[in-house]
């Protein structure tokens, strides 16, 4: 699983782009994800909105989460099939998140099969 991290400020700036810049951004991501899909290695992918709730203490405490200025948030994830973490790292290298201040986390999913 490839998990996309970005500072909150980055996420906010992302949404303040001009229509032209947004289109360029979409093209970049589509190109990268399309490339993984073309190799037949795409399993699934979702984007996450930059807000939500964090629940603690058996659900007794519900907060708006760490989604504040300065904090890092998870912007989305992509699940790919790869023989190894190294191969997944290779697939992740062209990810547009590196064009900004974001980072990417590669985690193997436990295979119960």
């Amino acid at each position: 699983m490839l998990i996309f991290h970005a500072p909150y400020s980055q996420e906010a700036a992302y949404q303040q782009q001009s229509p032209e810049e947004m289109q360029v951004e979409i093209q970049k991501w589509n190109h990268w994800i399309g490339g993984i899909a073309a190799q037949g290695k795409m399993v699934g992918t979702e984007a996450l909105l930059p807000f939500g709730k964090i629940m603690r203490k058996s659900g007794q405490v519900v907060t708006d989460g760490p989604y504040t200025e300065g904090k890092e948030i998870v912007g989305g994830y992509t699940v790919v099939t790869a023989a190894s973490v190294d191969e997944a790292v290779e697939l992740a290298k062209g990810c547009p998140i590196f064009d900004s201040e974001g980072s990417l986390e590669v985690r193997p999913i436990v295979n119960f099969g």
Partner: peptide, 17 residues
């Protein structure tokens, strides 16, 4: 997953226009 097609490119300046 519809992201499978690598050919879906957006027309130039579509968003702006």
């Amino acid at each position: 997953m519809s992201a499978s097609s690598g050919s879906n490119q957006l027309v130039d300046h579509l968003f702006r226009h």
